[in-house]
């Protein structure tokens, strides 16, 4: 097994609001090996974006990190002072935000914006040197380097998204977190952007965390998949393994409710109920009110997130077995 890049231990984060604390991230632990890509999948409000923001410490003022560690090598990112953390962002971890393609400033050329980001993190550079670097990055993400002097409005949505990816690659990070990187894009463009990301990752050997509500996108690009529900990581395994042998009933339900154009036209099964309110989450296992397998113990006790072998983790008292699929 390759070297670990990131170790998240018992991460817990709340948002303080008028109505009480929103338990957005609750006791989440996972590891990420160098060169691996992890996909975090879950519905809106399940805490997947909050995890990403906690890792980068880019949280709003009302967020409170209650506990946990984020180890990157020997450094605990949560314990770093802000000025040290600033150096970590971009150069070690960078992030592609949701709808990032709309975050480009319309009054500067795309090239200027990438150079600005570069100089912010690597110090002032010689102009020709900086432009050479941008050309290199453009080439890497499949954009014509001559486009670097154009303005964002001259780019299509897919091109803008690639420009943003080029920007996040500018300081050679070890880890890129991509939060819904293709959600606003059309399928053909989405396909190209995802393939480009995979290609770049293979070339540069960095690690990726993909965050998406779309299990199909996650299945395409990640070799490990983590399923989140109501602020908790409920299952984590290699992607083929999780599709072949899902343990958690929520994972199974998610797969059963996702339509596909391939294979037999299966009968889709809706999941009853709605995701819980995270100010007053259900006791015990947070999934128990919607779970077909729930018993009294699920109401009373919190299931442990444990290894079922093959580095397949799940938090469930009644995991699915062979005959249940």
């Amino acid at each position: 097994m390759s070297k670990l890049l990131l170790q998240v231990e018992n991460l817990t984060m709340h948002y303080g609001t008028r109505g009480g604390d929103v338990r957005a991230v609750d006791n989440v632990s996972f590891t990420l090996a160098e060169g691996d890509s992890l996909g975090l999948v879950g519905e809106s409000g399940c805490g997947k974006t909050s995890i990403a923001k906690t890792l980068l410490r880019l949280l709003p003022d009302n967020a409170k990190i209650i506990g946990g560690h984020v180890w990157m090598g020997d450094t605990d990112l949560l314990a770093l002072p802000e000025n040290e953390m600033r150096k970590f962002r971009w150069s070690r971890i960078s992030m592609i935000f949701q709808a990032a393609m709309n975050s480009l400033n319309p009054v500067y050329t795309v090239g200027e914006q990438i150079i600005e980001a570069l100089e912010l993190h690597m110090g002032v550079m010689d102009n020709t040197q900086a432009r050479a670097r941008v050309a290199e990055l453009f080439d890497l993400v499949g954009l014509d380097p001559t486009f670097m002097d154009r303005y964002p409005h001259e780019f299509s949505g897919g091109m803008r998204q690639r420009a943003v990816i080029a920007m996040t690659l500018s300081c050679n990070p070890d880890l890129i977190i991509a939060d819904e990187p293709t959600t606003a894009l059309d399928v053909i463009v989405q396909d190209r952007v995802l393939r480009k990301l995979e290609e770049v990752q293979a070339k540069l050997g960095m690690s990726m965390i993909y965050i998406s509500h779309d299990i199909a996108v996650i299945a395409e690009v990640s070799n490990r998949i983590g399923v989140m529900y109501a602020g908790q990581l409920v299952e984590l395994a290699d992607s083929v393994e999780i599709f072949e042998r899902p343990l958690h009933p929520y994972t199974f339900a998610l797969m059963k409710s996702f339509p596909s154009i391939k294979g037999q036209r299966q009968i889709l099964q809706p999941l009853e109920g709605e995701p819980p309110n995270l100010i007053t989450p259900p006791s015990g296992c947070r999934f128990h009110p919607r779970c077909p397998r729930a018993t009294q113990i699920c109401v009373d006790e919190v299931p442990e997130f444990k290894d079922y072998g093959n580095s397949h983790f799940a938090a469930c008292f009644h995991p699915l077995e062979e005959g249940d699929y």
């Binding site: 053909i188 396909d191 299990i215 199909a216 299945a219 395409e220 797969m255 391939k262």
Partner: peptide, 25 residues
């Protein structure tokens, strides 16, 4: 054909074809 090829499939065991069509809409 390109549209179908680009639609992601929620199962890592199924492979897709890749049809490269030029340019954007």
């Amino acid at each position: 054909q390109a549209l179908l090829a680009a639609t992601p499939v929620p199962d890592p065991r199924l492979s897709r074809d890749f049809i490269n069509i030029k340019g954007g809409i």
